[in-house]
Amino acid sequence: MRVGLFIPCYVNQFYPQVGIATLQLLEKFGCEVDYPLAQTCCGQPMANSGYESLTGNCNELFTKNFSSFDYIVCPSGSCVLHIKEHLHSAKDRTAATAIRRNVYELTEFLTDVLNVDRLQAAFPYKVGLHQSCHGQRGLHLSQMSELVAKPYSKPERLLNMVEGLELIELDRKDECCGFGGTFCVTEEAVSVKMGKDRVRDHEAHGADYITGADMSCLMHLQGILKRQGSKVQVKHIAEILNAQ
């Protein structure tokens, strides 16, 4: 099974440890992982700002980088959703179509493709799971509280396999943190208020760590936690699932 590792641009630059944990985790499960060095970004920052029309080159680059893999795996629900919904290539339509079908967010890949039911990981802390919206409502990583439907959660299921980890309950288990891409600066006041309210929910329930499948949301929450001088830390789910 040849897996192409797709690392979001900001993770590459600011959170290399998340990329490393993702890679090591996939290798542990026997995947033959390759990281195309020429990758940059999925194009989502432009598209969500209304400039999907400018993402043509990003799309071509992405298609070229990832056309030769059985699966493409990425530790971000948001970037995966963008590729799934918006990747098009004028040069290689077949490859783009295949990529849209074969691109997976890390926890859904571990759950649905690798059928992981056991993990060699330990993380003896109280952990709050932040459900990032694109992963949850876009990729259906977890059931959504708005729907009258049976609950499930792929990230929660994996976290429950980690030794010593205690998942906390939240008052609002799937409310948006307010990151929202450029929203976090164009609507700074609301964005921060949403983030503060998420942080408060986790703190009130005794979280040592806030985790999630999207580092962008966690970066936003981390910025608020640090400014508030909170002891609560953020950690990407890949790091926890890979923790020894």
Partner: peptide, 14 residues
Amino acid sequence: KQREMPAPPEQSFT
């Protein structure tokens, strides 16, 4: 304004 910036790491993942 109301958030800290992430600390830049030495190395990128690449």
